Computed example of a mutant assay.
Amino acid sequence: MPLTIAPITPAIGAVVGGIDLAQPLDAVTYATVEAALLEHQVLFFRGQQITQTQQRDLAALFGPLHIHPIYPHSDSVAEIMILDTDLNDLADNALWHSDVSFSETPPLGSVLVARVLPEVGGDTLWTSATAAYAALPEPLKQLIGGLTATHDLAKSFPPERFGADAQSRERLEQAKRNNPPVTHPVVRTHPVTGLKAIYVNEGFTTHIDGLPQDASDSLLGLLFRHVIRPEFSVRWRWQPGDVAIWDNRVTQHYATDDYRPHRRVMHRATMIGDRPF
């Protein structure tokens, strides 16, 4: 079957058909997928049957892979992070965030595979931070253009949820030591497309540097609310075997936490990115 790319919304998201991700991508197919990712920011592939090793190898086409400092990973494929509600409280995913923005070099993107799903619920939403930036009034663009903000792992990984026992507490403290708070521009430029994106998120951004706390909170609140407007976003209803690939540099996402007490298991491979500018 020929490869097809069907946009879901004008701002973000496309469904890619006619491809088997269990097979290595040839250079032409990879280039087509990469171009579609740059254009649509999140791609969805239905009906895929890929192993953890194949998922890792697919993600590695985009760049070197990240190992999360807190979440568990596969025993056999260390680059595969396990998001399993039987293993962890995943409430930190049920807010809008850009993955690992607490890093000096946040992820380029991720490859996410649906392994176990609840009968109903568990959708994931993505929003385009470039579409959100483009829709800002010009005076607001001017205001935030030269600002930076602090991102902190501790904001989404508090000890009351991730330090239940001595081993967990030590892992959390080690993660904090290895990942101290970092500063990134409030407006990020995509290194390939040159598009500008709002780069603050509810998950990890604690304050805008140089502003009093009340002013920082007000401006961050405005940006948090703006970036998630429905016209910038897409909602995906997962089916077993679905794969999503997204550009973490210019998107945020939200995993709905509406399916308890049912189980949800997702496997994620994350590609290391560059320093935001």
Results as ranks from 00 to 15, higher is better:
His151Trp: 07
Glu79Met: 00
Asp214Ile: 11
Pro139Glu: 09
Leu153Trp: 02
Asp99His: 01
Met266Val: 02
Leu43Arg: 11
Glu104Thr: 14
Ala11Lys: 04
Glu202Tyr: 10
Leu153His: 03
Asp165Gln: 03
Ser101Pro: 03
Leu153Ala: 02
Val186Ser: 12
Met81Glu: 00
Ser233Arg: 13
Ala154Thr: 09
Val120Ser: 11
Leu83Ala: 14
Arg177Leu: 12
Asp20Lys: 12
Val16Trp: 05
Leu83Arg: 08
Ile82Tyr: 00
Asn248Ser: 13
Pro276Arg: 01
Asn248Gln: 04
Phe102Gly: 01
Ala11Trp: 06
Pro240Met: 10
Asp20Ser: 12
His267Phe: 11
Thr205Glu: 07
Arg188Asn: 09
Pro261Asp: 04
Trp238Cys: 04
Ile19Met: 08
Ala255Thr: 02
His262Thr: 15
Pro212Met: 02
Arg177Asn: 03
Leu219Ala: 11
Arg263Glu: 10
Thr148Gln: 06
Pro2Asp: 15
Pro158Asn: 05
Glu34His: 14
Met266Asn: 04
Leu112Ala: 05
Thr127Ser: 15
Asp89Met: 05
Asn93Ser: 13
Val113Gly: 03
Arg260Pro: 07
Ile245Leu: 09
Val77Thr: 14
Leu195Asn: 12
Pro191Glu: 02
Val227Lys: 11
Arg115Trp: 00
Ala244Pro: 06
Tyr259Ser: 03
Gly273Ala: 02
Glu202Phe: 05
Tyr199Ala: 08
Pro69Gly: 02
His151Thr: 05
Leu38Arg: 14
His190Thr: 03
Gly241Thr: 08
Ala175Ile: 00
Ala60Thr: 01
Ile5Glu: 13
Gln23Leu: 15
Lys155Asn: 11
Val77Leu: 02
Leu108Thr: 01
Val120Trp: 06
Leu125Trp: 12
Leu65Ser: 00
Ile12Arg: 03
Gln49Ala: 13
Ser101His: 00
Ile198Thr: 06
Trp96Phe: 12
Phe232Glu: 12
Gln54Asp: 10
Thr124Asn: 11
Arg237Gly: 08
Gly203Thr: 07
Phe232Trp: 10
Ala166Tyr: 05
Leu61Ala: 10
Asp257Thr: 05
Asp92Lys: 08
Phe204Trp: 04
Arg56Asp: 10
Val28Asn: 11
Gln142His: 12
Asp86Val: 06
Ala215Met: 09
Ala22Trp: 07
Ile228Leu: 04
Ala35Tyr: 04
Pro185Cys: 10
